[in-house]
């Protein structure tokens, strides 16, 4: 697409998407670090994740301010309007992803390494799957790729299945050995947080689809596994 006659406007839109991608990169690392911290009882790493969330929050606040300004001063229309609305929603989803990752990291500080539970080993695997979803959706965002967004959206079902199997496995350990109940409860929250991050990725995918095509993703086409305890 050609540039705006007022080139500062193009610059502002590009700046917005660059900062969103920066925010996305940060949250992506936070997911991986949080999962790694919690499974290896790495407290310093967990604290880093908690600190990083502040940066993500600040980025979101800044993006929100710039969007308000852009709406007031540029009054974007058509694809520009969709770009700005999308940025607004994506930044709030990324901010939530940051919060959820922080929540996972914090459990490292609460978990007693002596009371570990076997199914904790499944966390990095699910974390990797979720982080790949985020990576793929950010990639779709940077390339304005509606098809890729749709693939990410459809793949959320895998995350839900991950969640169900981790939930079941943990429950089994907890029933077999009551000493694992405390760790198991934390683990169930961790799995739930990861599952929620997956949902935010599908939100972002829907927003990208709208930004690029101007149409809403058909809501009823997605394969959906019922979540345990949902």
């Amino acid at each position: 697409m050609s540039d705006h006659i007022v080139s500062a406007f193009s610059g502002e839109l590009e700046g917005l998407s660059a900062d969103l991608l920066r925010m996305g990169g940060l949250t992506e690392a936070m997911i991986t670090d949080a999962c790694s911290a919690v499974t290896t009882s790495n407290r310093p790493l967990a604290k880093t994740v908690v600190e990083q969330d502040k940066t993500v929050d600040a980025l979101e606040a800044d993006i929100e301010k710039r969007i308000t300004r852009l709406l007031a001063l540029r009054q974007p229309l058509a694809s520009d309007l969709r770009t700005v609305l999308a940025a607004f929603k994506v930044s709030s989803d990324l901010e939530r992803i940051g919060d959820l990752s922080k929540n996972i990291a914090r459990r490292t500080l609460d978990l007693d390494p002596a009371e570990s539970i076997e199914s904790l080993k499944g966390v990095p695997r699910m974390g990797r799957a979720v982080s790949l979803q985020l990576q793929a959706v950010l990639d779709a965002y940077s390339r304005n790729d509606a098809e890729q967004a749709k693939r990410v959206w459809a793949a959320d079902d895998d995350i839900d299945q991950h969640y169900n199997s981790l939930f079941r496995e943990t429950l089994t350990y907890m029933m077999e050995d009551p000493r694992t109940i405390s760790a198991g409860a934390h683990l169930m929250f961790i799995a739930k947080n990861l599952e929620r991050i997956g949902d935010h990725c599908t939100n972002i995918a829907e927003v990208i689809f709208y930004q690029v095509t101007g149409e809403y993703m058909p809501a009823d086409e997605r394969p959906k596994t019922p979540l345990i305890g949902a």
Partner: peptide, 16 residues
Amino acid sequence: FTNPADTRTQDYITGR
């Protein structure tokens, strides 16, 4: 104003 079909419309209303 949200999703014009023609790129010329798009370019005009977005100031391109």
